[in-house]
Design a protein around this nucleic acid. Sequence first.
DNA 1: TATAATTGTTATATTGAATCATTAAACATT
DNA 2: AATGTTTAATGATTCAATATAACAATTATA
Lengths: 174, 174
Amino acid sequence: MSGIGRSRGQYRQLWAVNMSNEIETMEQASRRGIDMGGLPSFVGYTLRRAQLVIFDDFIRTLDEVGLKPASFSVLIILGSNPGLNQSEVSAALGIQRTNFVALVDSLEQRGLAERRPSESDRRSHALHLTPAGRKLLARAMTLQQEHEARFTDRLGPGGREQLLTLLEKLLPTE
Amino acid sequence: MSGIGRSRGQYRQLWAVNMSNEIETMEQASRRGIDMGGLPSFVGYTLRRAQLVIFDDFIRTLDEVGLKPASFSVLIILGSNPGLNQSEVSAALGIQRTNFVALVDSLEQRGLAERRPSESDRRSHALHLTPAGRKLLARAMTLQQEHEARFTDRLGPGGREQLLTLLEKLLPTE
DNA sequence: TATAATTGTTATATTGAATCATTAAACATT
DNA sequence: AATGTTTAATGATTCAATATAACAATTATA
């Protein structure tokens, strides 16, 4: 589903960080005698690199079901919270409601979700998964778990939990 | 230097992940009774959120010296490896040569770096920092360390090293 | 009731990043 | 020396994610 084309390597760069195939890896750079300066010791830099690696795999993984991280996350929210309106879902996910419109359009056109008229507020739409949406979500969750396992393996026993704990400390406590 | 404008929140979203001010935080979402599904337990999701938080702070931090992550990293490489050509620097950082051109243009126009004719290969330019570039880099490094400290504090003793170790396990061993 | 705020929407701008083509120099092979 | 191939730098263009502004309909509030 959904051609690879641009989706490959889409999230690859940002902090001028390499990480794949044709692009030289940092290790290769050092081996060629390039001094990376303090870069690899910056938490932000390494965090970014790791995130790109994971997303690269994740995006390829989701490609089978024609989803991207954003649309996948929407399905997840709708699956657990049927009936929310667009503002609620987009706010929970940090998507601006203005950009959320096209996202829902797409899900609706694919028959994965639907906008139902809200009973309490004629301005808003109650969002629901369709049966097809629920089915696709289930498949996507399986793929996600396989993806997750690939990286969990690398972290060793307890590594995943340790990592999550540390990462959460970086998040705003609010 | 360099107006805030767009630079604020530029790296904020992607995986449809909120994290700041006006945008509802995940915690707020849960409090409103929204079930985030498995999302917070996905390493990729939490990694992405943490990365956005750090970058948000990092970008604001660098704003004082008019740098962005990419240009900052270029200065670092040039500082430690004077004389490299554009292909070498861009490859080490994972920036495509083609997009690297404008980056160097900008640094050159700001008088921070310069292209010198390579002595061995008339096709390529030897990149060097100017004295102004070295000075700005020094200041930027100080800012980076302050930024780093803000997050290191949150991680507790040994947390930073632990986190770096775990993250490196996620990177391609090549 | 008058005013303000909210919901969904369209249109538009910005930016990071990828793609394609071109030029000139360097290199390799006959 | 002539040829073809690779490499360095560049420009032009495209694409996708995200941000901003404005608007109509509706609801909430002073």
